[in-house]
Amino acid sequence: EEEKYTVIYPYTARDQDEMNLERGAVVEVIQKNLEGWWKIRYQGKEGWAPASYLKKNSG
């Protein structure tokens, strides 16, 4: 089951394993960790993003 989330704040990656996020983008969360960083898939790429910048899509 894919978990789709919408980006609610833009984010600029500060590290090579982080993802740039555009507000309104829909991403797939593939791994959650306890530090508040989630691994996401977006446009065929995978990387880490701050969970607080993502909002779960309803339905």
Results as ranks from 00 to 15, higher is better:
residue 28 E to Y: 08
residue 43 Q to K: 04
residue 6 T to G: 02
residue 29 V to Q: 00
residue 20 N to E: 11
residue 23 R to P: 13
residue 37 W to H: 03
residue 17 D to Q: 15
residue 14 R to Q: 15
residue 50 P to A: 02
residue 35 E to I: 12
residue 3 E to A: 06
residue 22 E to T: 14
residue 17 D to P: 12
residue 52 S to R: 15
residue 58 S to H: 05
residue 25 A to G: 04
residue 31 Q to D: 11
residue 52 S to D: 14
residue 10 P to I: 00
residue 45 K to T: 03
residue 7 V to M: 03
residue 53 Y to E: 02
residue 24 G to E: 04
residue 14 R to D: 10
residue 18 E to K: 10
residue 51 A to F: 04
residue 28 E to H: 09
residue 31 Q to W: 04
residue 45 K to I: 08
residue 11 Y to P: 02
residue 10 P to S: 12
residue 54 L to E: 00
residue 14 R to T: 09
residue 38 W to S: 14
residue 40 I to N: 01
residue 44 G to Q: 07
residue 21 L to A: 01
residue 35 E to W: 05
residue 47 G to D: 01
residue 51 A to R: 13
residue 50 P to G: 01
residue 2 E to P: 06
residue 30 I to S: 05
residue 12 T to E: 05
residue 56 K to T: 04
residue 42 Y to P: 01
residue 45 K to S: 09
residue 17 D to V: 08
residue 25 A to C: 06
residue 48 W to H: 07
residue 45 K to L: 10
residue 1 E to F: 09
residue 9 Y to H: 15
residue 1 E to R: 04
residue 16 Q to G: 13
residue 19 M to L: 11
residue 23 R to Y: 06
residue 2 E to A: 10
residue 46 E to H: 08
residue 37 W to N: 09
residue 53 Y to I: 12
residue 15 D to L: 08
residue 24 G to C: 02
residue 20 N to P: 07
residue 36 G to D: 12
residue 9 Y to V: 15
residue 44 G to S: 09
residue 13 A to I: 10
residue 45 K to P: 00
residue 19 M to D: 01
residue 6 T to D: 08
residue 44 G to M: 01
residue 31 Q to N: 13
residue 17 D to C: 10
residue 59 G to A: 15
residue 23 R to M: 10
residue 18 E to W: 03
residue 41 R to D: 02
residue 45 K to V: 14
residue 45 K to A: 13
residue 49 A to R: 01
residue 56 K to E: 10
residue 16 Q to S: 13
residue 10 P to M: 07
residue 5 Y to P: 00
residue 21 L to M: 07
residue 5 Y to K: 01
residue 4 K to P: 07
residue 59 G to T: 11
residue 30 I to L: 10
residue 33 N to I: 02
residue 48 W to V: 09
residue 28 E to N: 10
residue 50 P to L: 02
residue 49 A to H: 01
residue 47 G to P: 01
residue 37 W to C: 15
residue 9 Y to W: 09
residue 11 Y to E: 02
residue 29 V to N: 00
residue 55 K to F: 03
residue 59 G to R: 06
residue 25 A to T: 14
residue 59 G to C: 09
residue 31 Q to K: 05
residue 14 R to P: 11
residue 32 K to H: 07
residue 4 K to R: 13
residue 13 A to G: 14
residue 23 R to K: 15
residue 52 S to H: 11
residue 40 I to W: 01
residue 9 Y to A: 15
residue 16 Q to N: 11
residue 7 V to L: 08
residue 1 E to Q: 00
residue 36 G to H: 12
residue 44 G to R: 02
residue 30 I to E: 03
